[in-house]
Structures are given as C-alpha cells and as structure tokens.
C-alpha cells in the first residue's frame, strides 16, 4: 500500500516557484529520504503534504485518499504528522505539556492519551526525566528528541521530519537517528528531509533528489551512494538527468 503518493505537485509562493511537477511515492513502512541542496524545495513539499500550504497543481494521496484541500489540523487526526524544520517545540510549555499536545489531534480518550504518554516516555526515557521542565531549557538535541516524541504521541501512520540533524553535534545526531529507526521499527512510515546525504542514505531504503523544485534523481539508497549526479544536485550544476 502506498502511504503517500504525490503526482504532478507544483507549489508556488506568489510568483516564486517552490516545487514543480513533483511525483513521488512512499510505501507503507518504508523510510524514504528527500535530498537536495538548500532551497531545493524539500521543506516546501513537506508543507504541502501536511497542508500548511496548498499546491497550485497536482494531487497528494494518503493511503489512497486524495487529501485535496483538507485542512492541516485534520490531516494530523488521519495519522499524517510533520515535525517541522527547527523542531518548533513550545518553549514556554513543559515537556509534559508539549507531549500532551502531540495527541491533541487524535480522537483518543483521556485514558488512551495517558496510556500513549506512558508508551512514548518508555520509548524516550530522556523525556520522562525532564517531564516538568520548560521545553525551552532543553538543549538542541533534547529538543529534537522532544519534537519526535511529541509527534509520536498521536501514533502516526506517517511521520515526516525536516532536517532532524540540523545544528546537532554528531553524538546527538546518532541519538536522533537511532530514534528514527525505532520509530520505523514500530511500523511508522517515515519521510525524511535531510541535507546530510550519507546520514539519510544510511537509514532510508529509497531517496528522491530535488533540485530547484524538481525531482532530478531517485532510486534505492544503495544505487545513489556514489552517484555523481547526486553531488551535482548539491553543487547546483544543471543537467542532472531526470530519471
């Protein structure tokens, strides 16, 4: 089953093109990476999928259902969750409150939410330790852990995460990526946006490479490692062949 299916998606910010004619799909249970240089349109696509912005053309289907103009908050209750770039945890709220809000979009009862909270705290003990602290006092790595934990509170079917390694030291990056693997092992489909290519290709089964808003290269991770066109996409050379 396709968890996500984008066909011919174009996104514009006014007259500025964010993404052009993007077609891609993510299978249920898969980890797929979206790669590309700064400004290639990766975050734009995630925003279009989560409904923060609406594409001008094309369609986005979630487990076979066209999302159309479904508002962003409703997509969360369907099980489509987006951890945005820069984590955007609620710094003036406690860790516990952040986690609680992660389950806001679900129709779960109070007891179900409490149970889910226990599960997530079990998965990420770090969060339990700092439960009452204001989220703004956490380090960057801890904030990323919280952002992922918060997203997992709704027990999503698909987790989209934007640049989880950004601004973290290598040790913290490992922790975050271990978390993502755990999330995936639980059966959650992951769509990962990452600038760090080798990191992403390590855990993703497939990847799409974006350049100037369009897919210029895609395929299984193993085949992309060492592909010279991948480097071209990052160095901004034109003419990366479309496959």
């Amino acid at each position: 089953m396709k968890a996500l299916e984008l066909s011919g998606v174009s996104v514009y910010y006014g007259a500025v093109r964010g993404a052009e004619d993007v077609t891609l799909d993510v299978d249920e249970g898969e980890i797929v990476a979206l790669l590309g240089a700064n400004g290639a349109g990766k975050s734009t696509l995630l925003k279009a999928i989560s409904g923060i912005i609406h594409p001008r053309r094309g369609s986005i289907a979630f487990f076979g259902d066209d999302l159309g103009k479904l508002s962003a908050h409703r997509r969360v209750s369907r099980g489509l969750v987006h951890v945005p770039e820069g984590r955007r945890i609620f710094t003036t709220l406690t860790i516990g409150e952040n986690l609680e809000l992660g389950a806001y979009g679900t129709q779960h009862s109070r007891t179900e939410r409490a149970q889910r909270l226990e599960e997530v705290l079990g998965l990420f003990p770090l969060l339990k330790q700092h439960f009452q602290r204001l989220a703004g006092t956490l380090s960057g790595g801890e904030q990323q852990v919280l952002a992922i934990g918060r997203a997992m509170m709704s027990n999503p079917r698909v987790l989209m995460i934007d640049e989880p390694s950004l601004g973290l030291d290598p040790q913290k990056v490992d922790i975050v990526y271990d978390m993502l693997e755990e999330v995936s092992a639980l059966g959650t489909t992951v769509l990962l946006v990452e600038q760090n290519v080798s990191l992403a290709l390590e855990i993703a089964s497939r990847a799409y490479v974006l350049q100037q808003g369009s897919v210029v290269l895609s395929g299984p991770s193993a085949s992309l490692v060492g592909d010279p066109r991948l480097a071209d996409a990052y160095l901004g050379k034109a003419g990366g062949a479309k496959d």
Binding site: S50, A72, V83, P84, R88, F90, L101, G105, S154
Partner: peptide, 15 residues
C-alpha cells in the same frame, strides 16, 4: 498557549 507561541506548530499538532 501553544497557538500563542507558534501557530504553525500548533496546527501541526492537529489543533
């Protein structure tokens, strides 16, 4: 309070 701090992030929580 979440909406007060970050409207987009709040939306992404399903709010």
């Amino acid at each position: 309070r979440a909406v007060s701090e970050d409207r987009i992030a709040a939306t992404l929580m399903g709010i």
